[in-house]
Computed example of a mutant assay.
Amino acid sequence: MSGTWGTDGARDRDVEGRPRSARPRDGLGRPLPYGTAGVERQPEGVPRTPEQTVAEAQALLDDGKPFHAHEVFEDAWKAGPDQERALWRGLAQLAVGLTHAARGNDTGGVRLLRRGAGAVDEWASGAGDRPYGMDLAGLTAWARELADEVEAGVRSVDARARAPRLRGHAAR
């Protein structure tokens, strides 16, 4: 049997009836036991301007919550104009890559950091490297550097300390 089941044995569902885990999550998006205080989840499907997306994602990254930043980027990816979807998807992959690296999933972290860097770099080559003030060249360099470090055996990645700067200098 698969799915997410609540403490009463009923399957967790969102307000529209779709299966969705109601378990609380920590700052890296890992599920916690029911009844535990967790980090408030990002609502899905929130319409934001690109500038709002960048600002909200940066605040979450700065707070050490790359999983939650990924959800903000995912909204932009799914709702944005077709010509920008690859950009937002690549940024979501960077955030998930940082999430996996911080969780200790080195293989997943490296893979997603490299995939996201490639997508962002490819998008920038055709559309420019500073959409909405973001430093795409700096972000790809940050992601590739972090992927190299994780691949080389860095013991732990602190999501807050290693969060990228979406605008300006990408690495801290």
Rank of each mutant, 00 (worst) to 15 (best):
W123F: 14
L139N: 05
L28G: 04
T49L: 11
P50C: 14
W77R: 03
G126H: 13
M1S: 14
P33L: 15
A86M: 13
A127R: 15
L136E: 00
A86K: 15
G97D: 01
A86N: 13
E51S: 10
T36L: 05
A143S: 09
S125G: 14
G108L: 05
R165Q: 13
R11K: 12
G45Q: 08
M134E: 05
G80C: 02
D148C: 00
A69C: 06
G108P: 07
L94Y: 07
R103M: 04
P164D: 03
D63L: 06
E151C: 00
A102C: 11
T53A: 15
A59R: 15
Y132G: 01
D82I: 01
A159R: 05
R18H: 13
S21Y: 01
E40H: 11
R167L: 09
R103C: 02
G118Y: 04
A95D: 11
D62L: 10
W142V: 06
A163S: 13
P24M: 12
A79G: 08
L166Y: 12
L136Y: 05
T7Q: 15
A147C: 03
D14C: 00
R115K: 15
S21A: 12
A55Y: 01
V157I: 15
D62N: 14
D135C: 11
G80W: 03
K65W: 00
G138I: 12
H169V: 08
P31F: 08
E44D: 15
V157G: 08
P31T: 08
G133L: 10
L139Y: 07
R11V: 07
D121P: 02
P66S: 01
D135G: 06
H100W: 12
W123L: 02
